[in-house]
Computed example of a mutant assay.
Amino acid sequence: MFVNSKTHRILCSVVTATIMTAIISFTLTAVNSGLHAFPYVTWFRSWIIAFLLVFTISFFLPKFVIRHVSRIIKVKE
């Protein structure tokens, strides 16, 4: 499947955010409440909140970082 670079960037952000937030929110929920009485509703709610935050950040932060780092550090060609 061929997509343009903007679509590719959005898809990469969605997949990365989904994996990262699922692992982190599951781990934190399991550590805080234990696996024997794991609250799936609580985990799902925290995952949704984390996903929205991480997706937004992972979409906009790289451009911001690259722009500001490029002002300080020049790439040798």
Rank of each mutant, 00 (worst) to 15 (best):
H36E: 09
S46V: 05
S46T: 13
S70R: 14
K74V: 09
Y40V: 14
L61N: 06
T16W: 12
I19L: 11
I57E: 04
R71N: 14
K6R: 14
L52V: 13
V54L: 10
N4F: 04
R71S: 08
V14E: 05
I66W: 06
Y40A: 12
T27F: 11
T29D: 02
K63C: 05
L53Y: 09
I49V: 11
A50R: 01
A22N: 06
F26S: 09
I57Q: 04
C12S: 15
F44Q: 07
K63Q: 09
M20A: 11
V41E: 15
L53K: 09
L28K: 00
E77F: 09
F60I: 12
V65M: 08
F38G: 03
T7I: 10
W47Q: 11
F55C: 07
K6E: 11
L61D: 02
T7Q: 12
A37P: 00
F2W: 06
T42L: 14
S5M: 13
R9L: 06
V54Q: 03
K74C: 02
S13M: 05
V15F: 13
F44S: 13
H68P: 01
S46C: 02
F44E: 02
V69G: 04
R45K: 13
L53V: 15
T18Q: 03
R45P: 00
Y40W: 14
F64A: 13
S13I: 05
W43M: 08
H68S: 01
F55G: 08
M20F: 15
W47G: 06
S33Y: 13
L52D: 02
V65Q: 05
W43I: 03
K76N: 10
F38T: 03
L28I: 04
T7P: 03
R71E: 10
I24P: 00
R71D: 08
E77R: 15
F26I: 05
G34Y: 01
T56C: 13
V14W: 05
S70N: 15
R45M: 13
V54A: 13
A37C: 01
H36L: 04
F26P: 02
S46L: 11
G34A: 03
H8V: 05
F60N: 08
I49F: 00
I23L: 13
F2I: 02
S13N: 13
W47C: 04
T42M: 09
I10A: 07
L28E: 05
F64T: 11
V65E: 02
L28D: 02
T29H: 00
I48Y: 04
C12A: 15
R67Q: 10
F51R: 03
K63Y: 11
C12Q: 14
E77A: 09
A50E: 00
Y40G: 10
L61W: 08
L53F: 12
R45C: 11
S5Q: 13
